[in-house]
Every structure is written in structure tokens, then in C-alpha cells.
Design a protein around this nucleic acid. Structure first.
Lengths: 354, 354
DNA sequence: GCGGGTGCGGCAACGGATTGCCACGGATTG
DNA sequence: CAATCCGTGGCAATCCGTTGCCGCACCCGC
């Protein structure tokens, strides 16, 4: 089934058939109707390959995520899919499994057959990303890369609200369970935490960095024991849930003894007990926004390369945070041993010391 | 950059360049070397579009999953990606968000640009699937569809082992938390449970069906209260985890009062407390196997349309199952009210009544 | 020395849609 | 009434590899 078959059936030239589908309005309404009739009586469907070959547009965009299993990315991907299919565009999803090498390989494979790329939670270096961005329209999601259009949640504001919330509950000694050191989000969250803490005259102790999963959070909960801390903020919800679990394992009650705050508001955050107070980032909206920006670039828009698009966040208060108990700031648990390696990794930081 | 540019630079015809890349051995080694040199000094890369146009092979396969957020699918997808990239083939992933309509839409969009499809956890009807299978190579994953190549875990054996495990621990009154009624896996698991229970002379009560997530499991835990049941099997781990959580909320201890078994062995199964005893399906291997089968079909193999490929499973015993306590079979908890709707939905089944 | 076989490169015809340019007819305008 | 203009459809070139077929040259063996 080609346009030629349809053309013959409709009694027009092939070019007219082509224009009927790709250039609405260019052909007379009656002719168009006749063509369409012929087309679907023959069951004709335009071939993306041939079209791509002629237009050098594939109508596909790639989304690279570092871990499909992570609900945060799953939600972003949904946003991307929604925006893409609204624009009649197919998405090519690739998982890099947290590996730089795999990410490059996936990109290499996908790049030639797509019109543009959304990079979500990339593990590549800024400069590597810039190189790609020179070749194809590209938007970075969840990270700001200079000279490349980026869409990021307002991590600074989110962290500030979380800290203010804890301060309002009387907490003055905070712990922060850090995520991957190389992560851009980690940098912005930590900086904002530090700034806000300074401003409000709170003490803060940094733990980690940990692998940003539940197991990492449980390990971090171990470290916590030795310090007089009444509230913990974590880089993300997985870590926070790990902390919740780890603390319970050590007999520390949340939120009575220690308050815990996460980041991202993944689905599990409201299912755990106690429900996790966390900072909600508009993941779906972010994915959609990044995609719309990308599609605009593909259509020739300049690509806002200046400052990144910042998405609003909000603090979702659940049961894992409460008024600081006045009786004690340190956990009642007996064992407060800190493993040597953990002690070494943790960087004690007085907020006033900047 | 086209093969013509490369041809000129290497002093050969364009066809020779083409053959150098697509027909290794067809050109003389020295010539090939010269061509390759020219190619990468010019930075030439073959365009998938043009190739696809000429060969009517895109080198892409589509994977449709019903929910990217579900770790089970995430793992399958990884298996697919591994097998696909081993074969030099790109994966087009689409999420149907548990919706038949979206699944069709995604398929419609993806189908014309891929060489074949892996359908994982499809929500479509068997007949709809057969229709697609007539048009393009297709493999169904995690479900058996007559006349269509399928790859499924050995649900029957898995369930049997789980039940035997519980019987061995002295449990004789079982509960089953059902998944979606329309699910093929639900059917096979329930049937096997029934058969095994009959054989071992155990009583079994079916609860649900529930939405197969944690919340659904918690609701099922409510239902459980009214019955004298010492062990619960769930359709999947999410439900089982929900049951765990729900029972704890009602003051029932696991595994002291009630044993719980899940299905799938998702990552969270070993992180929850107590660790969940569950049936592990080789998700990654399944994805890879389905993909290899699909690629073989694309290469012209007949496509084993007879009985489905069955993957071995194994029971992973953790802390959520234990010897039946002799003092009591019913939970100590006070409130045993069952909501009317729940009572209505639950189908009491005596194993001997078949 | 000659016929046959084989290895290897070139020519040219595809594949299916898009699009610049032209032509034709009817409507508008001076 | 003639000069334009616009709307619309057709012609043909183009996008970039792939591949069937041909021919050349070289090697082998009889």
C-alpha cells in the first residue's frame, strides 16, 4: 500500500495524496475527502520510515533515564509520554542502569533515529552533555547544565520549606542523609539546607553520601545513633524510608523521638508507617514541560539556553514529623556505636562556620 | 555525510561502501579497510532511516508494559533491553498505564516503526492480540495466548511449592488474596492453589479480587480478620506487603500468628519487615527469552506457536512464614468486622467441593 | 593454452513519501 | 476586454542506502 495505489484509486496524482495527509488545507476539501475515502478503503497507512527519509524528521524523541525501576523516573517518563503523544510523537525510552557507559551506549544507539533527547537524571558529565546538545535538540531534566536547556524542580525552595517546617516544630539539631555526591540535586539540596539552617541558627550534620536507596537509608540510620539529632532530612524518599526502617530497628520512635523528612514524594511515601513528610516535586509536569520545550526546539525554536526552567514544589506534611520532644534529643537506644568508615565519611558541619 | 561522500574519498563505488558495512566479507579486506578509514575520517554514520527504508527493517522492537512504575515490569524490560542490544537492536518502550485504550493507542503508534513487539502484562483481549500477531512478529510475556508465542513463569509449580511449604509448617487453613480477575496469572495461580490444596487436604478461602497494590493488600487484611486462617498467600508481592502492613496495623503478628507468602520476589520483598517469603520468577531471563524468540521470528523463524515457554521459578523463604502456632488459628485482635462489600466479594471455597 | 570457476567492484533500479516549480482554469480587477 | 492573481493539482527530483545482476580479472586444472 503506497500513496501511488491510493492516488490511482482516487484518480489523482501521488503528490496530492501526500499533501492530503501532510499539508492539510493545501488540497481542495472535496479532493481531500475523496483521497481519504480511497485511503481507508484500501487500508493505507503512511510509513514513518519513508516519511522520515524524505523529511529528515523521525517523529520520535528519546528519553534516557538512569533507572526505570525508580518511581521518580517512572513518573517523569509518564509526563514525557503524555506531552509527546499529545504532539503526535513517539518516545524511545532507554534505561542506563545508573551507568555512564551504558548511558553513552544507549544514547549512541538511539540518537540517530530521534529528533531530540530528554536526559533525565543523567550520569554523564556536563561537558559530554554539551557535546550531544550541539548535535541534536536536547533538554536536561532534573539537573541544570550550563548552555543547555534544563528543567529542574525548585530544590532550594523545597529544602527551605522542609527546614522551616522542622524549625517551626522546635527542632534545632538536624541531620542530613546525603545522596550521590556527583548528583546535581544533591548539591542544590545540601546548599539550600545549609543556607536555611544558617539563617535560622540551626545545627546540621551531614551523613553519607549513601547510595540513594532504602538500604542506604538503613545504613545511615546506624550513623545517626551517635549524635544528638532530633530531625533528619534525606536526599530522597528511598533514603528517608530506609532511615525510618533503620530507626525502628534500633528502637527509635518516629516521630516521637526523631522526625524524618524525605524528598520527591514517591508513591511509597504515603504507604509507609508513619506516612513520610516529604517535598513533592511535580515530576509528571516536569517531564511534560521538558518535552514541550524539546518539541519547540525541534520545530526551530531557539531553545531557552539561559537559566533553567524551575518547577514549583510543595511540602507534603504527613506523620513522620512532629513537635520536638522536650525530654531528650538523643535516641533512647543503647548502642550508639558508629562504624569507623561511617564516622570518617560523615562531615560534621556547623552552620555558622561558612 | 552519505555513502557517496565516503565512496569518493575512498575511491570506490557507493555500493562498495554500503557492502563494507552491511555485508562483511563481501568486499576485499584491503578495500574494506580503506573504506572504513575514509568513513571515520569523515565521521560518517549510517542513517537508520535510509537503511530501514531500503530493507523494510527498522532494527527496533517495541515493548509494551501495563505499568512502568511496577518493578516487575521494570525488571522484564531490563531483560528485553539486554537481549535486544546484544542483537544490535533498539527498544521502543511504551507504557499503557493499565488501560486498554492507551495500550491500543501506544501500539498503533509504535507498530509501524518496529519489526516486532513484546507484550508484557497486556490488558487487551486474546483475540485482539491474535489480530496484531498476524500483522507483526509478536511475543506475549507473562501470559499465555493461544496460537501466539508466549513466555510465562511456571506459576503452577510456584504456587504448589508455596502451598507445600506452608503445609509443611503445619498450616491447614489458607487464605488467598486474589489479583485482578481478568489476569491470566491470577487464573493459573488460583487454579494451582486449589489443586494443591485439594491434594493436601487443606482448606482455602479466596479473598478479593483486589487491585494488585499495597493498598489492596491492606484492605484484604481487613477481610482476613473474620476467618480462622493461619497462612495467607497473595497474588503478588505488593498485595502481600499490603497484607503484612494491614495485619500489623490490626495487631496481628507475622509470622507468629499468621504466615504470609507473596509472588514475584520484587526488590521490596527483602526490605520489608519481616522479609517476605515469595515465589521468585526469573523476570529478567523471561524478558530476554521473549526477546530472543521475537528476534528469531523476525529473522524468519516460524515462531513456536504451540505451548508457551515455561520459565522455572523458585520459592524464596524469608521471615514471613513460620511453623503454625498451636495455641490459636485466629488472630487475637478484637475487631473482626468485615465490611459488607468485602464479605460479598469474598468467595468461600472448600477445597473438597470441586 | 584454454575453458571454467570464483572473488570482487560497479551500475542502476529500487523503496515511499515530500516538495519546489510549473501549468491550468476561473475569478478579480483596471 | 485584457492583465493578473489565486487556488489547486501534476511532474519530477530528491532523501540515502541496499541489492540483483553484470563484467572484469585472476587463478586453477586439464
Amino acid at each position: 500500500m503506497t500513496i501511488y495505489d491510493v492516488a490511482r484509486a482516487a484518480g489523482v496524482a501521488a503528490s496530492t495524496v501526500s499533501r492530503t495527509f501532510s499539508r492539510p488545507g493545501r488540497v481542495h476539501a472535496d479532493t481531500a475527502e475523496r483521497v481519504r475515502q480511497a485511503a481507508d478503503s484500501l487500508g493505507y497507512r503512511t510509513t514513518p520510515q519513508a516519511r522520515a527519509h524524505a523529511t529528515t524528521r523521525t517523529g520520535m524523541i528519546a528519553v534516557l533515564v538512569s533507572d526505570i525501576g525508580n518511581p521518580v523516573y517512572a513518573e517523569m517518563v509518564r509526563g514525557v509520554q503524555a506531552a509527546a503523544s499529545a504532539a503526535g510523537c513517539t518516545v524511545l525510552l532507554a534505561d542506563s542502569q545508573e551507568s555512564d557507559r551504558q548511558e553513552r551506549a544507549a544514547l549512541e544507539r538511539a540518537l540517530p533515529s530521534v529528533d531530540g533527547v530528554v536526559l533525565a537524571g543523567s550520569r554523564m558529565s556536563d561537558s559530554a552533555i554539551r557535546v550531544i546538545a550541539k548535535q541534536k535538540p536536547l533538554v536536561v531534566l532534573g539537573r541544570a547544565v550550563g548552555d543547555v536547556p534544563s528543567v529542574v524542580p525548585d530544590n532550594g525552595r523545597g529544602m527551605r520549606e522542609a527546614v522551616e517546617h522542622l524549625a517551626g516544630l522546635g527542632h534545632s539539631s538536624l541531620g542530613y542523609v546525603a545522596g550521590p555526591a556527583a548528583s546535581w540535586a544533591e548539591g542544590t539540596r545540601w546548599r539550600s539546607l545549609l543556607d536555611t539552617a544558617t539563617e535560622l541558627q540551626l545545627r546540621v550534620r551531614r551523613l553519607g553520601p549513601s547510595t540513594p536507596d532504602v538500604a542506604g537509608g538503613m545504613r545511615a540510620a546506624e550513623e545517626l545513633g551517635g549524635h544528638s539529632i532530633s530531625a533528619v532530612l534525606a536526599y530522597n524518599d528511598q533514603l528517608a524510608i530506609g532511615v525510618l526502617r533503620g530507626l525502628r530497628g534500633r528502637g527509635v520512635r518516629v516521630p516521637e523521638d526523631v522526625s524524618v523528612v524525605g524528598f520527591d514524594n514517591i508513591g511509597a511515601a504515603e504507604l509507609v508507617t508513619p506516612g513520610l513528610t516529604t517535598v513533592a516535586a511535580p515530576l509528571h509536569a516536569g517531564g511534560a514541560a521538558a518535552t514541550r520545550a524539546l518539541l519547540a526546539m525541534i520545530d526551530g525554536a531557539p531553545g531557552a539556553t539561559g537559566s533553567p526552567v524551575v518547577l514549583p514544589v510543595r511540602l507534603v506534611v504527613r506523620e513522620s514529623t512532629a513537635q520536638r520532644s522536650r525530654k531528650s534529643t538523643s535516641p533512647a537506644s543503647g548502642t550508639t556505636k558508629v562504624s569507623p568508615s561511617a564516622a570518617q565519611a560523615s562531615t560534621s558541619t556547623s552552620a555558622g562556620s561558612r
